[in-house]
Amino acid sequence: EKIKSDFFELLSNHHLDSQSRWSKVKDKVESDPRYKAVDSSSMREDLFKQYIEKIAKNLDSE
């Protein structure tokens, strides 16, 4: 859970929106230790998708 929250924090530093693509974001964040803390690339992508869904819901509710 800490790894997930750290990863979300990392993503939040990059001002993403619901149109952001993992392939582009990954290049910007892959040197960060919070990125490396997530064991697998599929898990990183899953967390990215969860984060994008979360910010999309937040935008819808505003």
Rank of each mutant, 00 (worst) to 15 (best):
H15N: 14
S42Y: 08
E1T: 05
D27W: 12
D46C: 11
D27P: 15
H14D: 03
E30G: 09
K36Q: 09
L11H: 00
D32A: 00
D6Y: 02
R21P: 07
H15P: 09
L47G: 01
N58C: 08
K36E: 07
L10Y: 01
P33S: 10
V25Q: 03
K54A: 10
H15R: 13
E9S: 09
K4W: 02
V25F: 15
E62T: 14
F8E: 05
R44G: 04
K2I: 09
P33W: 11
E45F: 07
A37M: 06
P33A: 10
E30F: 05
K36W: 08
F8C: 02
K2G: 06
R21H: 09
P33Y: 07
F48K: 04
R44M: 02
A37W: 00
L10K: 00
E9H: 04
L11D: 01
L11N: 01
V29F: 14
M43W: 06
S23H: 07
S42T: 13
S12V: 03
M43G: 06
R21Y: 07
L59H: 15
L10A: 03
K57S: 12
L47C: 02
R44Q: 04
D60Y: 05
S61Q: 13
L47T: 01
M43A: 14
R21T: 15
D60C: 08
V29H: 00
K2Q: 07
F7E: 01
A56H: 09
I55F: 14
K28T: 09
E9D: 12
S5G: 10
R34W: 00
K49E: 10
K54H: 12
K28C: 12
D46S: 12
A56E: 14
Y51A: 03
K24T: 13
S18Q: 07
K26P: 01
E30P: 00
H15M: 08
H15A: 10
A56I: 09
S18A: 13
H14E: 09
K36T: 11
D39C: 11
V25A: 05
K26Q: 12
R44W: 01
L11A: 01
K36R: 11
S23M: 11
K57R: 11
D6S: 04
Y51N: 04
A56W: 05
K26F: 03
K36P: 00
I55Y: 11
L10H: 00
A56L: 07
K26Y: 02
H14M: 15
L47N: 01
S40D: 13
R21K: 14
E9A: 09
V29I: 15
L59S: 14
R34F: 01
S5E: 10
D32S: 01
E1D: 12
